[in-house]
């Protein structure tokens, strides 16, 4: 239980800082120290499955730092402690899984012009919007649809060229290339495939400040020798209090596919959320995900409600029901509290 103390201490500190409106610090915007900004996010989650024992865990405790030193030196680093169980009766450990410390991102942004940036290092792969802003306080649901993190390489280590028009009048573009294996690979317990080559393109058509249509293309090769060609589309569209969003990806698999039951992998989700009060929203998504190793597509339906007392804090309660196929996300009740600081 002592593990619960420090997340609570951080919460109390942040709540206190917000309440006192400290000048120079705003919840969600990080803390400035010279040319650096230090921020992060934390998420504590409780999961009660229909079958088996429940868990309470620090799903993510992430710290990141951004530096603006010069036009060509703008470093960014993010490290994350993930899946740290506080309570897990079924675990072989005395108090559950001890978590994994992972390097999420480590790169430098070189601002070549107003519109072009060259990024070198380890970064998130721009496949869909969810993967790029996957922090719990920023995304719709505590349970992540499988299509937002499977069927592609979530990370890449290499070079990326980003184009962003200052007026937003032309679509944003991002080309990327990973020539070799990922730097500081995540442990096998956290990944589905390990890639040795990744290349791709993401195009984002802005509709409004938060709404967009994105198109993703990615070609990759994993260490099992499976060659993967992905195409995907994602969108977000707001109609007053109603927001619709979704993502769909399809991968054609070739190369060493002998251990797979199919030569493709695909999935898609469609979500709707409705702000029924200033700080409250109700939401739902439906997903189908056809895994390369399963004959039938998993079909999941989720309902939830979120309370957002601040733009950087959100409490979610949701129920997921697997309604077909081999479950990707098990049926059960999920609750989470998360903060961006």
């Amino acid at each position: 239980m002592t593990r619960l103390i420090w997340p609570i201490a951080i919460t109390l500190f942040l709540a206190s800082a917000t309440a006192h409106g400290q000048t120079g610090y705003q919840l969600g915007h990080g803390y400035d120290l010279g040319p650096f900004n230090f921020g992060g996010y934390g998420a504590v989650a409780a999961y009660v499955p229909d079958r088996g024992s429940g868990t309470i865990s620090a799903e993510d405790i992430s710290l990141f730092a951004t530096g603006h030193i010069s036009q060509l030196f703008n470093p960014f680093i993010e490290a994350e402690l993930t899946h740290l169980d506080f309570v897990h009766p079924g675990s072989s450990h005395s108090s559950g899984d001890s978590g994994s410390l992972v390097l999420e991102r480590l790169y430098d942004d070189m601002n070549l012009t107003d519109s072009f940036t060259l990024r070198l290092g380890k970064m998130l792969a721009p496949v869909g919007e969810w993967n790029e802003i996957h922090a719990a306080p920023l995304v719709l649901t505590a349970v992540r649809p499988a299509v937002t993190y499977r069927n592609f390489s979530e990370y890449l280590t290499g070079a990326s060229l980003l184009y962003s028009n200052p007026n937003g009048s032309v679509p944003d573009l991002q080309f990327y290339w990973q020539p070799d294996r990922e730097f500081s690979e995540r442990p096998s317990t956290l990944t589905f495939h390990t890639y040795k080559m990744v290349e791709g393109l993401h195009v984002k058509f802005p509709i409004s400040l938060l709404d967009q249509i994105g198109v993703s293309v990615q070609h990759s090769q994993d260490f099992q020798g499976v060659d993967q060609a992905l195409v995907g589309i994602d969108f977000k569209y707001t109609l007053q209090k109603l927001t619709l969003q979704g993502e769909w990806t399809y991968s054609a698999l070739s190369g060493r596919t002998s251990g797979l039951v199919r030569k493709n992998e695909w999935g898609g989700y469609l979500a709707a959320s409705y702000n029924f009060a200033e700080e409250w929203s109700a939401y739902s998504w439906y997903e189908e995900f056809s895994n390369r190793t399963s004959f039938a597509a998993a079909r999941d339906l989720l309902f939830g409600v979120a309370y957002r007392p601040d733009a950087a804090i959100v409490i979610k309660l949701e129920y997921l029901q697997n309604i077909g196929g081999k479950p990707v996300n098990p049926t059960g009740l999920f609750a989470s509290w998360s903060v961006l600081f």
Binding site: G28, H29, G30, D32, N37, G39, Y41, F64, T66, H68, N74, F76, D109, E132, I133, A135, P137, L138, A311, A312, L340
Partner: peptide
């Protein structure tokens, strides 16, 4: 908030 997570202040 989303921009902050993506390294823009």
């Amino acid at each position: 908030n989303a921009m902050h997570f993506q390294g823009k202040l």
